[in-house]
Design a protein around this nucleic acid. Structure first.
Lengths: 233, 233
DNA sequence: CTTCAACTGCGATCGATGTTCGCAGTTCTG
DNA sequence: CAGAACTGCGAACATCGATCGCAGTTGAAG
């Protein structure tokens, strides 16, 4: 049954027939729980079915493919993004939205993997987009620039959150491959070539006391003001 | 044989024993050819072995895992990045490097998938980093800000190139899922809710004549100047 | 030159995964 | 009440990454 439609346009329940035992959101919730605990790779069809007490093939009555399950999971996670009412200052509003995005991503690190390649676009993601556009509604700037700014903002927030998660994970478990990478990096830094990198590497471990939120604010603000050349501070 | 070392620190040839029939770069080249033609998913161990005329299990004499093969491929692709000599203006130099990054990514679109989650760090990627730091060497700015700027730049270039590739692909083949997404988007835009999104959607299809390179320059310049608050231009 | 440990290529195979097929049971509709 | 439509799902298939063990080959030590 090749359903070419998007899952968001496909009706959840069939018109006729017995009532389904589960629903999409239940599948998504089970997938989110699994991914939160053991990463996105642990979200296999069989694992989700087991968590639900269902047979491995039952899930295909609700979703057409695993990709769609991930899409449901992403949108469910995005539903946790709070949308505060706009306060008039577009920079502050957008910064608040960026903080929400970061918070949810820290709570569900697998979002980085799920949204790295594809760009799921469910109702809650759409609501996020609408919110961001609403924050910029007072700005006298072409729509294209606003969409660009939002896309760049999203990319930057993702990148920042990714390094934050990576560093936090390295601090706890130091999981082999990170160790191997550090070894290679010090090898590169002390090799004599790459002088700039060596200097940066040495300077990096010196003063690291800036709070993460402050760094986050500084970078996001810089990027946004650079893109929308604001006159406000 | 659990080799915990990075592949870049592991010796390519063994000290004793017969000469290997292939080498790492040959594997990487075969993988790149396959990925260029049919995407990263087509780079399976068996496919690479077939392309080389080798048995499916032979590759594991050169790499420990498929991840390492992808790492080799990424670094080989990054070797195509040209490093022009610095011209004194850091913004121009960094912009040139960004263009090189975009060019190589357009030539090897699978780089987006390969670098989406992981961040391979081979010799050529390190050389790129060194070049970017070198371009900023004249700036009176803490090293941390330079590293941040480079990371953000990389994220932005990736995002821009991804949308560019996606749109180009949609223009040619319009591959089903894009069609489904467009259907959902128009459904959202015409639903009455999401007024800002509807307005943006309507305005987007109006005037689209800005050349891609110009848009690229504009955004990258905006982001960089916003981050490093340049006084130039 | 001999010897042998070390390495190479690789066929066979394992476990896991996403997905399909067909069937029995269930439920809503006309 | 009868049949159509749908559900749950056991079994199976193709494909994937990875492992194991063996025969053949090489290079260095004595």
């Amino acid at each position: 049954m090749a359903t070419a439609d998007s899952i968001w346009l496909r009706p959840e329940r069939a018109a006729r027939g017995p009532a389904p035992g589960y629903d999409r959101d239940t599948l998504a919730a089970a997938g989110v729980t699994l991914a939160d605990a053991h990463g996105l790779a642990a979200v296999t069809m069989r694992a989700v079915a087991d968590a639900l007490g269902a047979g491995p093939a039952s899930l295909y009555r609700y979703i057409a493919t695993r990709e769609e399950l991930v899409e449901l999971m992403v949108d469910r996670a995005h539903s946790e993004i709070r949308h505060p009412e706009p306060g008039g200052d577009w920079l502050e509003d957008l910064l608040g939205l960026a903080h929400e995005s970061r918070r949810v991503t820290l709570a569900h690190p697998w979002l980085l993997d799920a949204t790295a390649t594809r760009t799921p676009l469910g109702p809650n993601t759409v609501a996020y987009l609408e919110g961001a556009l609403g924050a910029l509604s007072g700005l006298e700037v072409p729509y294209r620039a606003k969409l660009e700014a939002i896309a760049v903002l999203s990319a930057v927030v993702t990148a920042l959150t990714r390094t934050e998660i990576t560093q936090a994970r390295a601090g706890r478990t130091l999981p082999q491959w990170q160790q191997a990478r550090a070894a290679y990096l010090t090898h590169v830094a002390t090799s004599g070539q790459h002088p700039h990198l060596a200097a940066a590497f040495a300077a990096q471990n010196a003063d690291d006391d800036e709070p993460v939120e402050h760094l986050f604010d500084r970078i996001v603000t810089g990027v946004l003001t650079g893109l929308l050349h604001s006159d406000a501070v």
